[in-house]
C-alpha cells in the first residue's frame, strides 16, 4: 500500500510543495462546533454553538473576551486556544499600559499569526490545532479576522469556521451586501440565522447551547461611545433566539420577515 512519507512532521515539503501536517491541523478546526462572526459599519458580533460531552456535563465555552475592545471565538483544540488567548491578553494589556489606547486589532492578530507560523517551520513543534475568529473595535472601527493553524490571518466581512460551517458561509455570502448597514440587533439575528444553517438535522438553538458576543465602535462624530466586547450566555440570549425562531415560522407561512427589530 502506498504510504505518505511526507506527512510525519511540519518541516517536510511534499513534492507538490504542500505541508501535510499543517493541512491536518486545519482538519482539527473542522472538528470543533461552529462559530460565526459578522461586521457592520458600527458593530461586530460573534455567535457560537456550544457542545457538552454528555448530558450531565457543562457546555464548553466558545467565546472569550481578550480585552475591553476585543474577543475571540474558537473552533478546534480548546487548550491550544487557551495558549493563544493568554498570549493575546498579555499583548493587549501591555499595549494598553504603555500607550494608553486599545491595541489595533490587526496588530494583535498578526502577532498570533507570526507565533503560529514558527510552529510550522521547526522540527519538534506542531501547528496549533485551533482556528479563531477575532472580533474587535479600534480607532478605525469594527474588525473581524480569521486565524488558521498555518498562521494565515485574513480580515473578513463575515465568516464561519468549525463543523459544517460551509452552510453558514453560504448564508453569509448570500446576505453579504446587507451587513454593512445593519444595526446591532439585526446583525445578531443574521449571525444566529447563519448558525442555524450549520446545525445538524434535529438540533436547535437553546439558551444552554448558544453564545452571543458584541462589540460596538464609537461613532466618528463622537456621538456614540464605544460598546465594550461582551459575551452573552443563558437567559441573556433567549430573546435573540426567539426572534429568529419566530421569523422562520413566519417565513414558513409564506412571507419572509422584513419587520426586523432595528437598533434605535
Amino acid at each position: 500500500m502506498f504510504r505518505n512519507n511526507y506527512d510525519n512532521d511540519s518541516v517536510t515539503f511534499s513534492p507538490q510543495g504542500r505541508i501535510f501536517q499543517v493541512e491536518y491541523a486545519a482538519e482539527a478546526v473542522k472538528q470543533g462546533s461552529v462559530v460565526v462572526g459578522i461586521t457592520s459599519k458600527t458593530h461586530v458580533v460573534l455567535v457560537a454553538v456550544k457542545r457538552n460531552a454528555e448530558e450531565l456535563s457543562s457546555y464548553q465555552k466558545k467565546l472569550f473576551p481578550i480585552d475591553e475592545h476585543v474577543g475571540i471565538a474558537i473552533a478546534g483544540l480548546t487548550s491550544d486556544a487557551r495558549v493563544l488567548s493568554n498570549f493575546m491578553k498579555q499583548q493587549s494589556l501591555g499595549h494598553r499600559l504603555t500607550y494608553g489606547r486599545s491595541m489595533p486589532v490587526r496588530s494583535l492578530v498578526e502577532m498570533i499569526g507570526s507565533k503560529a507560523q514558527t510552529n510550522t517551520q521547526h522540527y519538534g513543534k506542531r501547528p496549533y490545532g485551533v482556528g479563531l475568529l477575532v472580533a474587535g473595535v479600534d480607532e478605525s472601527g469594527p474588525h473581524l479576522f480569521e486565524f488558521q493553524p498555518s498562521g494565515m490571518t485574513e480580515e473578513m466581512v463575515a465568516f464561519a469556521i468549525g463543523a459544517r460551517s460551509q452552510m453558514a458561509r453560504t448564508y453569509l455570502e448570500k446576505n453579504l451586501d446587507k451587513f454593512a448597514s445593519c444595526g446591532r440587533e439585526e446583525l445578531i439575528a443574521h449571525g444566529l440565522k447563519a448558525l442555524k444553517e450549520s446545525l445538524v438535522q434535529d438540533k436547535e438553538l437553546t439558551v444552554e447551547n448558544t453564545s452571543v458576543a458584541v462589540a460596538g465602535a464609537k461613532s466618528k462624530d463622537g456621538g456614540a461611545k464605544a460598546e465594550p466586547f461582551k459575551v452573552y450566555d443563558g437567559q441573556e440570549v433567549n430573546a435573540w433566539i426567539e426572534s429568529v425562531a419566530d421569523e422562520k415560522e413566519a417565513a414558513a407561512g409564506g412571507e419572509s420577515g422584513e419587520g426586523m427589530d432595528v437598533d434605535a
Binding site: 473578513m156 465568516f159 455570502e173
Partner: peptide, 10 residues
C-alpha cells in the same frame, strides 16, 4: 479565495 474577505483590507 472567498467572497467573504474584506475587499482591500488584506
Amino acid at each position: 479565495a472567498s467572497k467573504l474577505l474584506k475587499p482591500g483590507a488584506n
